[in-house]
Design a protein around this nucleic acid. Structure first.
Lengths: 169, 169
DNA sequence: ACTGAAAGAAGCTAACT
DNA sequence: AGTTAGCTTCTTTCAGT
């Protein structure tokens, strides 16, 4: 008797099959995370209790990992966004990098941080007031670090998002 | 009598001052977009009606632009993310690029799209199943386009998000 | 697995401080 | 601007199909 409980490895990272209804719910909640369950049900032409059970199941199965307000940084006086590619010096101790990354990702200007395998070691997506603050951010937080070899800054003219990806665990 | 109505230019793009309470609300809703108003009020130690009015005002002033479910793409069998930098051939007609971008941003693999001023003309953040799909994405949607000069693909090892930025208008 | 109904919780509005 | 109070609407559960 191979019972599910006990046979499974630490449990995580398993992929999940979604049917068409699940996919439609995910799509709607990606766009309108605060839609009422009643409206969601109406949009899908199902009973509110069904919509509710499905949505809960998506959260329980880890497909939906959270809900977030999206913020207009331009309205907050941070009308300039930039993407900064960073290359690290070879031979830097791994935990120095981890500490550094942890600090960078706490900075209020930072929106996203990508750790890469490629020409750049990571990229930082920031929102600031103007180009002088971009420069200031790079100088104060990146290029002065001993293990940062180089940075490459690009201004962001347009930004489009097709959903919100969960951060990696 | 300078009445507000009629005197204002097309109205948009104005920045907004937030007080400390506003900022705390934005911070909480960025992390927990579906927190109940009662819990939000309790977290801030204010009356629910105050929290409610403040939140509404943030949405009305355009500071909060929407709410979104975040999706774990790994659970959906798209366990690999990549960032692809694209450079365009000089002399491409502007509306060709606009059409191209519009198409790219509809592709199901695409999470984000950054239009840049810098070495790359834009960057595409994608989620796919494996490295062969990365290659497939680049070949089928990018490098075959006549006005794409080159692409540079980086695998994403780690991804952190400190909030969700609204798309540009 | 989906539905319908009933109870409990939360959102929303308005009148007052 | 914030609060208290009351009405309305939604979420949530559960028994039934």
């Amino acid at each position: 008797m191979t019972d599910a409980k006990g046979d499974l490895p630490p449990k995580n990272l398993q992929t999940v099959e979604l049917d068409e209804l699940d996919r439609r719910i995910v799509r709607i909640l990606s766009r309108e995370g605060r839609i009422t369950n009643a409206d969601l049900a109406a949009a899908l032409d199902i009973a509110p209790s069904t919509a509710h059970a499905r949505t809960r199941s998506l959260v329980e199965r880890g497909v939906i990992r959270g809900f977030h307000a999206s913020v207009d940084h331009q309205r907050l006086g941070r009308g300039l966004q930039a993407m900064i590619g960073v290359t690290l010096r070879g031979g830097t101790r791994h935990d120095s990098i981890v500490t550094f990354i942890d600090e960078v990702k706490q900075l209020p200007q930072v929106l996203q941080l990508f750790f890469l395998g490629g020409p750049d070691d990571f990229m930082v997506h920031i929102a600031v007031a103007d180009s002088s603050e971009v420069r200031q951010f790079v100088v104060e937080n990146l290029s002065t670090e001993p293990f940062v070899a180089s940075t490459r800054t690009s201004i962001i003219f347009e930004y489009h998002r097709r959903g919100v990806a969960a951060a990696f665990r």
